[in-house]
Simulated assay, not measured.
Amino acid sequence: MSELVIDNVWKEYGDQIVLENVSLTVASRAFVALVGPSGCGKSTFLRMLLGQERTTRGTILLDGEPLPPEPGPDRGVVFQRYSVFPHLTVLGNVLLGKELTAAKYKAKLFGSARGGAIEEARQLIAEVGLSGAEGKYPAQLSGGMQQRLALAQALIMKPKVLLLDEPFGALDPGIRAEIHTLMKRLWHETQMTVVMVTHDMREAFTLATRVVAFERPRDRPEEKQRYGATITKDIAIWPPRRAGEPSHSNPDRDGPVALQGLHRDDPSSSPSGDK
């Protein structure tokens, strides 16, 4: 399960109110896109879900429990700027989360534990279409490849919630379309809930199960500090999209058909790449 319940959340910085009275329930395995004008608090809201920011008022629950006060492995994140380590190879970047979790002080695994983690990392690298690039460094990768790496880096920890902060905005249209296909496939085959901030309305309606709009109802210059943004629209995509189920309107494009039997827990399956 990975349900998020946001109840009457406010975020203030001193006298400035950024968000006010935000309430939202995100069902387990939903894919929610957050849209709205620049500066309306979308990324601030995402950072509160991550644990980088605390609410001023209100509560955020994950599966009925309050979010921990700091980021943890139950929430993965991918930013627009590629959050990968330039001094580590592709394999090293993906493996790092496992090493830090299992060996906090040495950040190094040994023996069978390391072998198992490397195998898992290689499988995930293949799933995101980077097979053969395990020994390359981020500077040797294209922008699209670096974003695939950032996704693998987040997914290796099997997060309950994946948070995306305009992750595809810097990509060329053709590469972005490929990453969209990959993102749909990963969402269908995992158990995670996805919350994505985007300024691209087409992207929001292409990927999400719901599109949630943030806006400042009072946006005159003299009102901007005294009144924050809140949810003004909550649009469910029709026909409905559900993780692991084919779409009624575009089963080959929006459904899990492209997986062709690929499941992370099935070692006998072979990665099929993007379709």
Results as ranks from 00 to 15, higher is better:
80 Q>C: 06
94 V>K: 09
102 A>K: 03
87 H>E: 05
98 K>I: 01
88 L>Y: 07
83 S>C: 12
87 H>P: 03
88 L>P: 01
83 S>Q: 10
84 V>G: 00
98 K>Q: 12
88 L>F: 10
108 K>S: 15
90 V>F: 05
101 T>A: 14
109 L>N: 04
94 V>M: 05
92 G>V: 06
108 K>P: 05
112 S>H: 15
98 K>D: 09
98 K>V: 06
108 K>Q: 15
92 G>A: 03
82 Y>G: 02
103 A>M: 13
106 K>S: 14
99 E>G: 04
114 R>L: 07
84 V>W: 08
115 G>E: 02
114 R>F: 07
89 T>N: 01
88 L>H: 11
91 L>Q: 04
95 L>P: 14
115 G>F: 05
87 H>W: 11
111 G>T: 07
107 A>F: 12
114 R>E: 07
89 T>C: 11
89 T>D: 12
106 K>C: 13
109 L>G: 11
88 L>C: 08
94 V>Y: 01
106 K>Q: 12
115 G>M: 04
88 L>K: 00
94 V>F: 01
80 Q>H: 04
80 Q>P: 04
90 V>K: 01
116 G>S: 09
112 S>C: 14
104 K>P: 12
108 K>L: 15
116 G>F: 03
93 N>T: 01
111 G>Q: 09
93 N>R: 01
85 F>I: 05
81 R>T: 13
114 R>W: 06
90 V>P: 03
109 L>H: 09
83 S>K: 03
105 Y>H: 15
99 E>N: 06
99 E>P: 06
107 A>K: 02
